[in-house]
Design a protein around this nucleic acid. Structure first.
Length: 559
RNA sequence: UGACCCAUAGUGUAAUGGUAACACUACAGUUUUUGGUACUGUCAUUCAAGGUUCGAGUCCUUGUGGGUCAACCA
């Protein structure tokens, strides 16, 4: 064939390819993923991880993991550990040991001194209000504070004394001397260091001054020899400053390139708001399966591959975007469909008796584990006279195209026999309490000689063999597509009150007794489920990862 | 009223200046011992107006709309 499929490249790949072609950095590619350890990673970070590690993989490079820990008041080792775990779980390996911006505090300090010596930085005693006032606004140029003209000697002395702890928190800052009338606010003498007495998760109380993001990030990149420093669009206006420090310091020229961050509908993505949901108890922790964090997706049963595929499908560009949750759900179904064992579990049970099946008789039926994977083999499922089926699979007075059970109707039990519904009884509340059927003995799955037709197939569980478990069905956390859209309202007003449905009366086939955390199952006709870490041997708990597509329910407006 | 960035189906991402493609969603069908999966079909002339060109989604100009920036956060 003369038409080969050309894999389309995103702008970052094109850029790196050009760099490689032009011999930039001698063909070396080193990216980095630089989280601040102040919270758990979310699906947006997952995209960034896939982009950074993926780019390096594609071009024979490496990726550093560097914690951007320059603000001790927010950071903690708890987050460091969770972040490392999440990256590994996603299937990526960083180069060598993890790195920390705090490892460079000495070098950063020396760089600041260099800039002071060059007359490019000064100590300012102004309060933060005064500094803000002197900065002007985007349309009004700033004015110098009185300290801007201090001598190099005085600045050197003052900065050393800042470091030595001679001044109280907030009393002085070190600022770069750039351009107070720049149209780019970030160039109006940005802060480089502030005085902060807080315990740092790694350097303890060694320092009382800490570098700001802008003075730490680019130089950290440079120190590590990062070739492509890829970040999100909101840092775009920082780039001239990133370049300015590198140029004035005459250090390795890492280059920053920005891409659009991921947004998802029906959720919120900022760490601040996620933290609020956790701290105010709207969810049960950072890994509550309704959260958009990586740890939550893991607990909910998403596979690493499904998230990597999702990141791939989402693409990389420079325009703001909101990805449809449906794409994430598609990605996980697509992957789980291939790898999940099919099992039977009845979520809303109703008793069914096969009146012509001998009492006390038990039959073991062989049922394939996964029709999508012939290698997966089969398992034996016990069958008997009394079964549970799904309450919703029976209707007293079914509509025309209801392919399930109703008085006088035939239906196939998955992997078993065809039943004929004889009658049923109700309890005092008018609820169906028992369905009575007969079975066609010669209709056994795989050796059906009955000639009987059945339109539908139901899942079932043998009552004497059933294992009673708890099931947690999750729905989207927010009922509004854009919880942040209305500036008049708090996003928490849009929390979906029905985002968690706990079912305690669920019966599953005995094979599930040996289910393990991290395994994926498809509860046939229902959805993908996985064992929750809360489970104990005597009390199994299953999380719904995602439901199956259900064109019947969709068409009939049911839930 | 400043600087920078962005604008292609409902959503997202493509398209050396040469017939607008792919995926998701939605809808309609085929297959099916999961109303699942798989498969088929349907759905945009690229924000607007000018300009350059034989030819513009792509280049230029001007608008319009949106985003980011005035934290001792990252």
């Amino acid at each position: 064939m003369d038409t080969e499929k050309v894999e389309s490249k995103n702008f970052l790949e094109v850029k790196i390819e050009n760099d490689l072609a032009n011999g930039v950095n001698d063909g070396r590619v080193l990216t980095r993923f630089p989280p601040e350890p102040n919270g758990y990673l979310h699906i947006g970070h997952a995209k960034s991880i896939c982009v950074n590690f993926g780019l390096a993989q594609k071009f024979g490079g490496k990726t550093n993991l560097r914690f951007d820990d320059t603000n001790p008041v927010k950071e903690d080792t708890e987050y460091v550990e969770s972040i490392k775990k999440d990256i590994k779980w996603l299937g990526f390996e960083w180069e060598g040991e993890e790195l920390y911006a705090s490892d460079y505090f000495d070098q950063l300090y020396a760089m600041a001194v260099q800039l002071i010596e060059k007359g490019l930085a000064y100590v300012d005693d102004s309060t933060s209000e005064e500094i803000a006032a002197h900065k002007g606004s985007p349309t009004v140029p700033g004015k110098p504070t009185p300290n801007r003209s201090r001598s190099i000697e005085e600045n050197l002395d003052l900065f050393a004394r800042m470091k030595a702890g001679e001044f109280p928190d907030g009393a002085k800052v070190l600022r770069a001397k750039i351009d107070l009338s720049s149209p780019n606010m970030h160039l109006r003498d940005p802060l480089m260091y502030r005085i902060l007495r807080a315990h740092h998760h790694r350097t303890g109380d060694d320092w009382v001054i800490y570098p700001m993001y802008d003075f730490a990030h680019g130089q950290s990149d440079s120190i590590e020899g990062i070739t492509h420093s890829i970040c999100t669009l909101e840092f775009e206006n920082h780039r001239p400053l990133y370049d300015w420090f590198i140029e004035k310091l005459e250090i390795f020229p890492s280059k920053q390139t920005e891409f659009a961050r991921l947004n998802l509908n029906y959720t919120v993505m900022s760490k601040r708001r996620l933290r609020q949901l956790v701290e105010e108890g709207h969810v049960n922790g950072w890994d509550d399966p309704r959260m958009p964090t990586i740890s939550a997706f893991r607990r909910r049963g998403y596979s690493p591959a499904s998230i990597r595929n999702f990141a791939q499908k989402v693409g990389v560009a420079r325009r703001d975007n909101v990805i449809d949750m449906a794409l994430l759900e598609f990605s996980v179904r697509e992957d789980l469909n291939k790898v999940s064992s099919r099992v039977m579990g009845v979520l809303d049970p109703v008793k069914l008796v096969i009146t012509n099946f001998p009492e006390g008789k038990e039959e073991l039926l062989s049922i394939e584990n996964n029709p999508e994977d012939p290698e997966s083999g089969s398992r034996e499922v016990p069958f008997s006279r009394e079964l549970y089926i799904e309450r919703g699979d029976f209707m007293e007075d079914p509509p025309k195209k209801f392919f399930r059970l109703g008085p006088g109707k035939n239906v196939r039990l998955k992997g078993a026999y065809i039943l004929h519904c004889e009658d049923f009884s109700k309890d005092e509340n008018g609820e169906i309490s028992e369905i009575r059927c007969t079975y066609y003995e010669d209709s056994k799955s795989g050796s059906d000689t009955s000639g009987v037709k059945a339109k539908g197939t139901l899942h079932w569980v043998s009552i004497p063999h059933a294992v009673k478990v708890e099931v947690r069905n999750y729905d989207r956390l927010f009922s509004a597509e854009f919880p942040m859209a209305d500036p008049e309202k708090d996003f928490k007003e849009f929390i979906n009150p029905n985002s968690l449905e706990v079912l305690t009366e669920v019966y599953v086939e005995p094979a599930l007794q040996s289910a393990k955390v991290g395994e994926h199952y498809q509860f046939m006709r229902k959805g993908y489920y996985c064992l929750d870490p809360d489970a104990t041997e005597n009390h199994l708990v299953f999380n719904r990862t995602v439901g199956l597509r259900d064109s019947w329910a969709k068409k009939h407006g049911k839930k």
